[in-house]
């Protein structure tokens, strides 16, 4: 029963194979997951093609008109269909700023996840496969970092970078500093998971078979162990994306993230916050909603992926 009891003739075509797979089946069977996937896909698409999708370019001063400032959403008395979600203090279309903002948020999120994944998976592989003092050093480093909240680590790195960078480069480099800060703050989780999975895989006989013929340890790690530990890492990365977006938003909200000239969702919320009590609620509410929706849908996708990849829960 253990080896694929349902393994009847498998369709050859890749698309058919995907449609036929157990993972796709569990995906279709979960309406929440399908909705999250659609929502997340809309965000990714809009962010990727922002210049074409957004109705206005909010960062082109030529198109801005201060006369449009503080226009409420379209359904309010003073609203206009030209600005469906209203405008901010400088007359920028909120919907467009949200689309451009998600773009910044997602770029930072994806890059940070990729960065911490490369560091974490790399160190975790080394620690798990080589054990000994390499493992001790890597894992103790991870343990120490995990005792400090990730946001504090990110704040610290951000602060140090700000001091080191010359003033004229600060705004330009802000996004990279942010990616570095969030990326470094999150690597221990990847290292831990990778090390655990590596310890299991390392003792499997297919690794022994490669060692018997003298395959180089680095090659064994990359071609044998790595593909087999990527499952749990991908789950972590999905949830990590949501976390990274939140961390970015938090940093930007605190004012140490991206500058208002190229705002992310967090920056938009911070800027909008100033107008909350003067009645212009839409400036901060809609970016906040967008952030919550994005993070929630990515998180739900991660949850599903974790269950789908874990045969014990199936």
């Amino acid at each position: 029963m253990s080896d694929n009891p349902l393994g009847t003739t498998r369709p050859e075509n890749l698309l058919h194979r995907i449609l036929d797979s157990d993972i796709f089946y569990s995906f279709i069977r979960s309406p929440v997951t399908v909705v999250s996937a659609i929502v997340a896909a809309i965000f990714f698409f809009a962010a990727a093609f922002a210049p074409w999708v957004a109705p206005h370019n909010p960062f082109d001063p030529a198109t801005l008109d201060l006369m449009d400032a503080f226009t409420p959403p379209a359904w309010e008395a003073d609203g206009t269909p030209n600005f469906p979600l209203g405008t901010d203090d400088q007359g920028r279309d909120i919907l467009s700023t949200i689309i451009y903002g998600s773009r910044v948020s997602l770029i930072v999120g994806f890059s940070a996840v990729l960065f911490s994944m490369v560091i974490g998976v790399g160190l975790g592989l080394l620690a798990g496969y080589l054990s000994g003092w390499v493992e001790t050093i890597v894992m103790r480093m991870a343990d120490v970092q995990l005792t400090i909240p990730a946001i504090l680590v990110a704040l610290m790195i951000d602060g140090v970078a700000h001091i080191l960078l010359p003033i004229h480069l600060r705004d330009e480099m802000a996004i990279y500093v942010l990616i570095l800060a969030i990326g470094i703050s999150d690597w221990p989780r990847y290292a831990r998971v990778t090390r655990g999975a590596t310890l299991v895989e390392r003792n499997k006989e297919y690794v022994s078979a490669a060692r018997v013929i003298g395959v180089h340890p680095v090659k064994i790690m990359l071609s044998h162990v790595l593909p087999n530990v990527m499952g749990p890492v991908l789950v972590l990365a999905t949830i990590g994306l949501a976390l990274a977006v939140i961390t970015e938003a938090t940093l930007s909200f605190l004012g140490v993230g991206v500058p208002p000239t190229q705002p992310s969702l967090g920056t938009l919320i911070r800027v909008g916050n100033n107008f909350l009590f003067s009645g212009e609620w839409w400036i901060t509410l809609f970016p906040s909603l967008a952030l919550v929706t994005l993070v929630l849908s990515v998180n739900l996708l991660g949850d599903w992926l974790r269950d789908a990849l874990n045969p014990k829960l199936r």
Partner: peptide, 15 residues
């Protein structure tokens, strides 16, 4: 020299 292992489910890389 070569080796043949015990567990046919663990001795081949599933990927």
């Amino acid at each position: 020299w070569q080796m043949i292992f015990q567990d046919p489910y663990a001795s081949l890389n599933p990927r």
